[in-house]
Every structure is written in structure tokens, then in C-alpha cells.
Amino acid sequence: MFELSYTLQIVMLGTLMLGAISGMMGTFVVLREQALIGDALAHAALPGIMIAFLLTGIRDLQILLIGAFFSALLAMVVLNVIKRYTNIKFDAAMALILSGFFGVGQVLMSHIQKGGTASQAGLSRFILGQAATMVRRDILFIAVVALVMFLLMMLFFKELKLYIFDQNFFKASGLNERFINGLLTMMVTFIIIIGIRLVGVILMSALIIGPPVAARQLSNRFNINLLLAGVIGGFSGAMGSFLSATGNNLPTGPVIAFLLGIIVLVTLLFSPKNGIIKQTIQIKLYRHHIKKYRRLIHLYENPGLPASHADDYHYFIDHAYVCIEDGQLRLTDKGKRRIKHVKAVR
């Protein structure tokens, strides 16, 4: 079989952990209808990275990520202030913060690297990530963050779940909304920050959104969703890095995102619950039946139509769905069964 090189093992382990934890975290975020918050925060991290570098002059990943963390946190605070004090729609505020913060980051970067254009190589690393260059220390860092996030998630599982499903009830139960909201934001931010290193800013959203969306197609139960999202995320992460390492010059982040996209697509199309294919067929069939048996349904809802309407019903009379009794149109047993069947398609 394959012999996995040490580097590849490292990378696969890293992306597996990242995929699993962001998939689980994403379950909360997507249900809270803030799926794109990850996208906004990831972009907003850029100026923080640059400022951290300007202040320390060190290229050390962990230090730069601390800058990223504060920058993303600032973006989140600004978003909340805008939401609280204006009528601006949240998605508009998010779009502006995402792009505006990124612009500030680009300015800082071009200032650092002087001469405008040379900066772009460094930036594309931020945008698309660079999993292939991970070393043991990076993995340790990711493992620690992922583990802490996982423990926090389990510790506050009950509260998080309640908050996601019913914020009003949560408040009414006397629980601290600010705390749980802050906790959620902080956890998402942390995960995004470690994700940027691996898959980059743009595709981080795939890791947050893809797994929960796919999981949602497979199960209606929250706990199962959470588990499935973790499994799907972890699998795509590890599998993605494996494929990208074996393929010719395949970038890791995009391969993971592509894989996730395929998984989402397959679940959307074929989910036994409400897959597009099953739904489309059933809806077509339902519509067809309703159209075909329109008159029969009408008779069922309005019993006792006089036989003078028989002209409209000759098809159904011919097929023994309807008979004429005492000068009235009557549904036969066959007709009643047919109606039951039509209704049952849903």
C-alpha cells in the first residue's frame, strides 16, 4: 500500500483535526444563521497579522496569529455595534467589514514590503493557505487549540445548544447571553485563525459551512448532526491533503474545499430525507396526480353532485372510480382508495 511520508502524515493529521473541529463548530454557526461570519472574520484577520509583524518584527506564526485574533475580534465587536445602533442589514455590514479590513491589511502589507507589488506572493499564502509546509510544532499548536475548543464545546454543550435553538428562552432561563455569545464568537475566531494557516482565508468558509450542510441532509437530530459534521470535516481534511500530496502540484486548501463541495453536492442530490432528486420526482408525481384526479378530488370534497355532471366524469366512470347512484355521482371504493393514494404521496 501507500507509504506515507512523515511530512504527509503531519499535514494529514493537522487537516484532519482542523476539519473535524471546524465542522463541529460550523454546526452551531450555520444553525445560528451566521454561516458567513467565518468568511468575514477570516478576511478581517489580515491587518492584525501585519500589525503584529510591524510591532515585533518577528515572522513567527504564533505571534502573527495573536495579531490575527485581535483583529478578527475587533471586527466582530464593530459588527455588533453597527447591528445594535443602526438599521443597517447585518449582511451589508459584514460585506463592508470583510472587504474594508482586508484593504487595510493590504495597505499595511504593501507598507511593510514597500513597492506595492512584491507583496502579492505573501498575500496569496494568506489567501490560499499553505498546508504543505507544516511542521511538527504547527501540528501541536493546532492540536492544542482544537482540543481546548472541543472541551469548551462539551463543557457548555447544553447552553450552546439552547442558545442556538431559542435565544429568548435562553434569556428567560436566566442564563448569561453575553457570555455564551462571546464564547461562541471566540471559539469561531480561534478556529478560523488556525485554519487560515492551512487552507487560507477564502476556503475557510468551506470548512465551516460544508460539513454541517451535508450533515443536515443526513439527519434531523442535532447531536448526530454535530458528530457527522465532525466526521465529514475530518475526512475531507485528511483525504484532501492526501490527494493534494499525491497529485501533481495540487494545492491543499482548494482540494479540501473541492472534496467538501462534492460531498455536499452528493448529499444534496441523493439524501434519502429531502434530496433534490427524490424531492423533484415526488413533487412531479404529486402535481401530476393532482392534475389528473382533479375532478375526483372535487367529488370527494363535495359529495352528492347530481348525475347531470356525469359528462365531466366519464373518464372516472369508465375506470370505475365513480358510479351513478340515485341520480348522484358517488365515489366507488376504488375511487376512495385512489384519493387516499394521491394524498399519501406527500
Binding site: Q282, R287, R294, I297, H298, E301, N302, R346
Partner: peptide, 17 residues
């Protein structure tokens, strides 16, 4: 006449006259 409307397969209006 005989109006039926459904969202997906959930009837919202059924045989309205």
C-alpha cells in the same frame, strides 16, 4: 375553480371553488 396550491408537497389550498 378547482384551485389547488402546494408548497413542495404540502397543500396550502385544496380544491377551492
Amino acid at each position: 375553480e378547482d384551485l389547488s396550491v402546494a408548497y413542495d408537497r404540502q397543500p396550502v389550498l385544496w380544491d377551492i371553488d
